[in-house]
Amino acid sequence: MKKLKIGDLEKIREKARRTANLRQGKARAKITVHMGTCGIAAGAREILTALMKEIEKKKIKDVIVTTSGCAGLCSREPMATVEITGKAPVKYVDLDAAKMKKILVNHVLKGTVVKEYALAIGSERTY
């Protein structure tokens, strides 16, 4: 049986090193896509894929994308939380790929909260 060998990785190492400041905690923003059963059922994986592709396309280097579990508001999934360093996190609800892209451009890049998709401003534990 074949072991998957990734040949190209060496080539992109140098390139990636210059842009890979995420691990050192230099990221300016963090986007958390909720991946509980409810989120997955509502399409969280597509949101995550769209988000990653858009970040790649726009060559954004200072944003971390991560996932979390169920936040207890299953009926409003897919949800994502956007945290800009030093600012209160914003939770977005009832998302789709297009809304996620808009949030990325307006909130993450330009700093304007997309109020019409936001649930509330605050941290993860609501109760």
Binding site: A20, L22, R23, E56, V65
Partner: peptide, 10 residues
Amino acid sequence: IKDIPINNGE
């Protein structure tokens, strides 16, 4: 990939 984080976009 050594020091490159595996969640790097590339």
